[in-house]
Design a protein around this nucleic acid. Structure first.
Lengths: 140, 140
DNA sequence: GTATAATTGAAAATCATTATCAATAGTAGG
DNA sequence: CCTACTATTGATAATGATTTTCAATTATAC
């Protein structure tokens, strides 16, 4: 139960949420895992601490955590149901194809690209989404 | 039934696929639509030409077209089940939040970013995925 | 034409997610 | 500490998306 777990729970509390054993277990999994997890994987891991936990509660808690931007959804070829702790500010996701390890990197230098695209297309750019994959140093 | 439709059907044929009325209708929808469509939307549109068409055939045909990289899956907040014709080479997707219109733009200038990320993280970068959204000129 | 194998649609099965609901348990206030 | 209030819980059922199965049909090569 890390300091960071407590920080996430405090954020939940600020959303009129109560701090329960189920949420503690789920948050603890998300805080301490550096790869994308599906709801069922989170369910399995969290039940090691809270064996009574139900899958539905996992879905409900993930929804709150995503709303608080503490976690993000990860999109992959195999599917888009995995979640991972979110980065801060303008960070993007880099995933290892082999071990699944996730790394966050800064992407400030994309602004030039977006303003160019905006001018060329006449769009007012609002949002963007960048995800990169490859093979990490350990898996090479 | 455009020239481009024929071109897509020829590509399908090169995959040992037969050219059928169902596939013709589905390909025609994908070739002529510039916004992301869900399988059911494609089903509804294609049935205007081939009323006997089944939804399962839509799923099966989309699978082939994705394999041939003629279409791409579009990922959005609301879900990731929509498809759109693919761009050529290193093109990325720009979507209008209001009308759904899709525009493809070139993203060659991302290479510098990726080599920087590769060096900083020790990853061998293999693939990336960029999607941008905003409001198009017509919707502003 | 005919034979062959791919393709079809319908129905059923699967998988992910969401809604319902009565029982439980945080939390604020005394 | 006790109580009341309301959020949360897990089980079950319902929904929605996608895949599988299968017998009938049909494109295509010969």
């Amino acid at each position: 139960m890390s300091t960071e777990t407590d920080h996430w729970l405090a954020k939940l509390r600020s959303l009129d949420c109560r701090v329960t054993g189920a949420r503690r277990a789920i948050v603890d999994v998300m805080v301490s895992t550096l790869r994308a997890l599906t709801p069922v994987e989170i369910y399995d891991l969290a039940r090691q601490n809270d064996p009574h936990l139900g899958l539905v509660t996992v879905y409900r808690t993930l929804e709150k955590l995503e709303e608080l931007r503490l976690i993000q959804r990860v999109h992959q070829e195999q599917g888009c149901q995995a979640f991972l702790r979110a980065g801060v500010g303008h960070q993007h996701l880099l995933l290892c194809e082999r071990c699944g390890q996730a790394v966050l990197f800064d992407g400030d230098d994309l602004d030039a690209l977006f303003s160019r695209i905006g001018q060329q297309t006449g769009f007012e750019i609002k949002d963007h989404w960048l995800q990169v994959s490859g093979v990490c140093a350990g898996c090479k």
